[in-house]
Amino acid sequence: MAHGVMAPSYGYGPRPQAQTASNFELWAWLFMRISGIMLVVLALGHLAIMHVINTVDVVDYQFVVDRWTGPWSAVWRTYDALLLVLALIHGLNGVRIVVDDYVSSQAWRVFWMSLLYVGGFFFIVLGTLVIFAFTPQK
């Protein structure tokens, strides 16, 4: 019988018990919902600031310096860090689900999953480092 499907129980014997499973997929599901709601606010706010209130002519290195060193520095750095972490994990988890559903070859699964985890970890560390260790160059 296929993996994960148990044989039916008949008569008065013990009922089949589930394997002890982790709650990983449950947390992933919950994360997608919470991060999704937060990203609506964060990403639309980002869009409004960068492309509606300001234009691409104004947004340059100095623009970033002003935001990250001004009196609201902590707020903007937190905003950008949240946007980075939530959007990256939200997107990569979506790709993980697509890979899980549609890549059946074990070798390709290992390849894609490794790439997703390593890539995700690398960009989160790199991005967070840039956001919080940033000091303006003269």
């Binding site: 993996h3 994960g4 589930a18 394997q19 499973a21 709650n23 997929e25 992933a28 559903d101």
Partner: peptide, 12 residues
């Protein structure tokens, strides 16, 4: 619910 929390359970 324990069975549905498995790999091929509800989260698919």
């Amino acid at each position: 619910l324990a069975t549905l929390n498995e790999r091929n359970g509800i989260w698919r």
